[in-house]
Design a binder for these strands. Sequence first.
RNA 1: GGGAGAGUUCCAGAGUGGCCAAAUGGGGCAGACUGUAAAUCUGUUAGCGUAGCUUUCGGUGGUUCGAAUCCAUCCUCUCCCA
Length: 376
Amino acid sequence: MQFSLQATSEGSRCRAGELVTPHGVVQTPVFMPVGTAATVKGVLHRDLKEDTKAQIILANTYHLYLRPGVEILEQAGGVHKFCSWEGPILTDSGGFQVFSLAGCRKLTEEGCRFQSHIDGSRHLFTPESVVDTQRSIGADIMMAFDECPPGDSPRDYAAKSLDLTHRWLERCFNRLANTQPKYGYRQSLFPIVQGCTYEDLRVKSAEFVQQFDADGYAIGGLAVGEPAPVMYAMIEVVDKVLPEDKPRYLMGVGTPVNILEAIDRGVDMFDCVMPTRNGRNGMLFTWQGTINIRNEKWRDDLSPIDPEGTSMVDHTYTKAYLRHLTVSGEMLAAQIATMHNLAFYTDLVRQARAHILAGDFKTWKEQAVIKLSQRL
RNA sequence: GGGAGAGUUCCAGAGUGGCCAAAUGGGGCAGACUGUAAAUCUGUUAGCGUAGCUUUCGGUGGUUCGAAUCCAUCCUCUCCCA
C-alpha cells in the first residue's frame, strides 16, 4: 500500500495525501463511513459511492465473524464480493467490541473470551485468530487486536492494558508475516496507539508501534468520555512520534469540529458512527451547525434540507417533509438523513483537503469551527 | 316506548371517600448518541419561580373534617329490547 503526501500547510500539521489500496485510491484527509455488518445502514452502495462520495468504508471483524461467519465470507470470495462494494474496505478488529461489550467477556494474556451478544455462545478472540479472520474477510486494511480501556482508567490499569496491547501487536504482525492473503491482493495491518489520557504512555505506545514499519498507524482509545482538549493534546503528542510518511488514522472520531481539529494536528483518516447513527435519530449536520429535525420549528419549513448540501436528497426534499418522515417513524427518514450526513462528512474533509492544497487551511478552519458548533 | 350503562388531565384508559395533579399506553415537546448489541435510549407533558401553593376528573347543588370517588338533579353519549 502506497501513501504519498501532496501538500502540507503553514502553521499547521495538516496534510493532503493519497493512499493507494488494492481496491482504489483514497484521497486524504478522508472520512470512512461505518458499515459494521458489511452495510452502511440504509444506504445502497450506488448512493454511497456516487452520491455521498464515500471512498472507503468500514466493516467489523467481531460482527462479521458472528454473522454471517467466516465460511460464508470465504465462499463469497471475501467481503467486497459478498456485499458488492468494489472500493476499499477497512475492518476494525473487534478490539472496540471487547471494550463496549464489557460484561460479557473476559480478558487474558491469550486473548479475549466473550459471549456472543446474539445468542450467548462462547468464543475466543486472539491476536492470531483476529488476523486470520480479517484475512478471510479480505479487508484492504486490517486493524490490530487491541484493548480499548475506558477513558477514565487509572494509570496503573492503563499501563498494564497498554503492555498487553503491545504484546498482542507483536503477535498480530507475526501472524501477518506467516499467513498469505486469500484473494490475491496484499492486505495492510495498522497498529493502534493506546495509553488513555496519559501523555507518557501515549508517547511510549507511539514509539513502540512505529518500529513495525506498518502501512499506516491508528490512534485508538480517544473520544471515550475525555474532554475534547485532552483528546487534541493526545493527538499532538502522538503525531510528533509517528512517521510523517505514513497515514494516521484517528479511530471513532468524531464531530465535524473534532475532525477539523484533528486534521489540523496531522490526522489523515477518520471513521465515526455519528453521521449514520445520529442521522437515524434525527440529527443533521450542516455547514451552519446541527439540526434536530424532529423539533417543531421545522414543521412548516418547506425549504430544501440543506441548500449548501452536496447530496441529491438535500435539494430533492424539504425540511418539513423530512421532519414528517422522522416523526412518523418512516424508514425513508433514516435513509435521507444518513445520505445527507454522509455527504456532509465527506464534503467536510474534501473541503479541508482543498484548503490544505490551497495553503489556507488554518484560517479556513477557524471560521468553519465557529459555524459548525452552532445548533439550528 | 321499555331496559342497561357511560361521561377522568391532548387522545385512549385505570382509579370508585383521604396515600390523586390522578397508574399505564399513545400522541406532543425537548435532550442524548464519537473504531454501531442503537430506525435506539432518556427526560418532560394543569398553573405558579423549587420546597410549597392554586385551579382540575360533563354542569349545578348537597352529604362529609375531607369527594374524581357518595346523594339529588340537569345535560350528553353508547348499547340492548320493542
